[in-house]
């Protein structure tokens, strides 16, 4: 459905992605793991076509995205079918009410009954009570849900989610994980939270600190691969003392594991 070929990106002298090849098949739920600053957000923005690669290309339905976006009809279709949730939800919110915010996409695309669609999706993510509130007065978690509903209301085929649980409390996080699993869409979810990885998807891409993909495969297999996890800076080791003994030893450690 979407693929990249030798995708590179740099901000001036700073390399953010150094040659990424990946293929996402329709219907897959894929987790994109990596530590802060490894290039996860950049990769999602490149896939969504909001920034241009320094070299290489992104292919959507067989066409190079950056070339396709210049074609009005293709751009319309691409924007309808691919949704990007930004890590900072504030970047997405600018309408006067939650309802207007969610209805913005359908109105832009000229869909009928935009208001009804918006109300429907607001209900599905649990925002009924705040429909008339201004988005900027909501809590960070609610903002994230408004953004998510604004994307889902277009019923896209591919959802690119950048740290979608970063502002959610544990209960909402659990709810969102289930909610995402039940969606029919192809999903690519970026997170630095290892324990969420196995819950969010079956396939896992790991972006290393060298800004390339250092693992592409089964999530459960990854959890046993300490070498990859350490290389991606997803686990750490430190001196460890157990209560039942005097022994000090080192082992791999993550504080967000299960």
């Amino acid at each position: 459905m979407i693929a990249t070929e030798q995708l590179r990106h740099a901000y001036g002298p700073t390399v953010t992605l150094a040659g990424v090849d990946l293929v996402l098949a329709a219907g897959q739920k894929v987790v994109l793991l990596g530590s802060n600053g490894c290039g996860k957000s950049t990769l999602l923005k490149l896939l969504a076509g909001v920034i241009a690669p320094s070299s290489g290309r992104v292919l959507y339905a067989g066409r190079a995205v950056h070339e396709g976006l210049r074609d009005k009809g293709w751009r319309r279709r691409f924007r309808r079918e691919v949704g990007l949730l930004f890590q900072n939800p504030d970047a997405m919110l600018f309408n006067a009410t939650v309802l207007d915010e969610i209805a913005f996409g359908p109105r832009q695309h000229g869909l009928d009954s935009a208001g009804d669609r918006a109300r429907d999706w607001a209900g599905r993510v649990g925002l009924d009570a705040v429909l008339d509130r201004a988005p900027w007065t909501l809590s960070a978690g609610q903002k994230q849900l408004v953004c998510l509903a604004s994307l889902l209301v277009l019923e896209p085929r591919l959802l690119l989610l950048d740290e979608p649980t970063s502002a959610l409390d544990p209960r909402s996080t659990g709810w969102l994980v289930d909610f995402l699993q039940d969606l029919p869409q192809t999903l690519l979810v970026a997170t630095h939270n290892l324990s969420l990885a196995s819950e969010l998807g079956e396939r896992c891409l790991v972006v290393g600190e060298d800004h390339t993909i250092i693992h592409d495969g089964d999530v459960l297999a990854l959890r046993g691969d300490h070498e990859v996890l350490a290389r991606a800076n997803l686990v750490h080791t430190h001196r460890h003392r157990h209560r039942d003994g005097e022994v000090q030893h080192r082992h791999y450690h993550t504080h967000d594991w299960d």
Binding site: A48, V50, K72, R79, F86, A91, F104, Q108, S150
Partner: peptide, 18 residues
């Protein structure tokens, strides 16, 4: 950097020039 995100988010949510 933050401002770029605001611009990109509008771009990502709109099928044509607003």
């Amino acid at each position: 950097r933050l401002f770029a995100d605001f611009r990109h988010a509008l771009d990502a949510r709109t099928p044509a020039r607003v």
